[in-house]
């Protein structure tokens, strides 16, 4: 089947966002069958055990805040302040993202606090007017499943 795609169909802002179903976006990583490590990039071999048994894997939507910084000064045009978060995803994988809804006071942010992914329109479009779909983190009450 060859269908001409609408040039304004939403696009993934980064390559590891899978939009095969627009109503069910997720992060697609690659899991190593040898050691279990999950990578966001597509690699020829596992960086950890060098094995070649890498298969696509859907990452979970929940995780815990491993690390963060509050960014007050960034590149020209970037709105600050915001929280840059490193999240250990439940079920494997590590994802960097902006943490919204938790304020920008370091005292209000705790290592290991539960967070979850929220997908949505990034507010940015490509030259054809296609919106970029991105994700961010919000505080959550812990794993739901």
């Amino acid at each position: 089947m060859t269908a001409v795609q609408d040039p304004r169909t939403p696009k993934a802002a980064v390559s590891h966002i899978c939009l095969s179903r627009l109503d069910d976006p997720y992060i697609e990583g690659h899991r190593c069958g040898g050691c279990g490590e999950v990578f966001l990039e597509v690699h020829a071999r596992c960086a950890r055990c060098f094995g070649d048994d890498l298969t696509p894997a859907r990452l979970g939507d929940t995780g815990r805040l491993y690390n963060f910084t509050i960014v007050h000064r960034s590149f020209p045009g970037v709105v600050t302040p915001f929280v840059s978060a490193i999240v250990d995803m439940d079920g494997g994988g590590v994802v960097r993202g902006t943490l919204k809804g938790a304020g920008v006071d370091p005292a209000a942010l705790a290592f290991d606090m539960p967070v979850r992914l929220v997908f949505g329109d990034s507010g940015q479009k490509d030259e054809q007017g296609a919106p970029y779909i991105a994700y961010h983190f919000v505080p959550s009450q812990g794993p739901t499943s």
Binding site: A13, V14, T69, V71, S74, F75, G77, V78, V79, T80, F82, V83, S84, A85, I86, R96, G97, T98, L99, S122, Q124, D126, E127, Y132, A134, Y135, H136
Partner: peptide, 10 residues
């Protein structure tokens, strides 16, 4: 494009 800084942390 797109500007990733701020969108996906820093």
């Amino acid at each position: 494009s797109p500007q990733l800084e701020g969108l996906f942390g820093s």
